[in-house]
Every structure is written in structure tokens, then in C-alpha cells.
């Protein structure tokens, strides 16, 4: 009955917050979807929002030891699930 996780777009993550990639929106063209998947943004992968420079600038995300910056257009089309902290500690 309890929600295991909260669905969000990557862009909605706050700095420091981590999540698991779940899928892609159809606003993202196939070639760019392929590219971010090659970078490691694959369904099931753990991503962490590292920085938000503000003023609408591209934000910075980490996948294991790699760091990428994605702009709003891409990051709103990558869907993630944030684990419920209660669930996670259990």
C-alpha cells in the first residue's frame, strides 16, 4: 500500500539526490535517446544530480565515475524513480 518510489523527471532532482533511470519521454529524438543511453543513462542505472548552476544552465549529473551536463530539454525527458527513504533504509 505504501509507494515504493516517486516518479520524476531527471531535471526535477535536487543536487545531492539520487535516483534510478526508468525510461524516456517521447520529446527526446531517437538519436539523442541513444546517445544518453550510451553515456550510461540506461533504465536501471543509478544517477545522482550533482549540481544545479542556476539561471536555467544545464545541470550536472553523475553516473558512477562519469559526469555529464544535460540541459532542460534532455533532462525533462529522462524519467527516474526516487526511492522512498523509509523503504530504502528498510
Amino acid at each position: 500500500m505504501k509507494n515504493a518510489s516517486v516518479a520524476k523527471a531527471l531535471w526535477d532532482l535536487r543536487p545531492g539526490e539520487a535516483a534510478t533511470v526508468t525510461g524516456f519521454g517521447d520529446t527526446l529524438s531517437v538519436s539523442y535517446q541513444g546517445r544518453v543511453m550510451e553515456f550510461g543513462f540506461q533504465p536501471g542505472a543509478r544517477v545522482r544530480c550533482l549540481l544545479n548552476p542556476g539561471f536555467g544552465a544545464p545541470r550536472v549529473y553523475g553516473i558512477s565515475n562519469s559526469v555529464f551536463s544535460l540541459d532542460r530539454e534532455i533532462a525533462t525527458a529522462v524519467f527516474v524513480a526516487v526511492n522512498n527513504p523509509v523503504e530504502a533504509s528498510a
Partner: peptide, 10 residues
């Protein structure tokens, strides 16, 4: 217009 995605090297 294409979206922006760039690797940030160490």
C-alpha cells in the same frame, strides 16, 4: 535546435 549534452572530464 538540438539539446545540449556534454561530458565533463575530470
Amino acid at each position: 535546435e538540438q539539446p545540449f549534452v556534454l561530458e565533463l572530464p575530470p
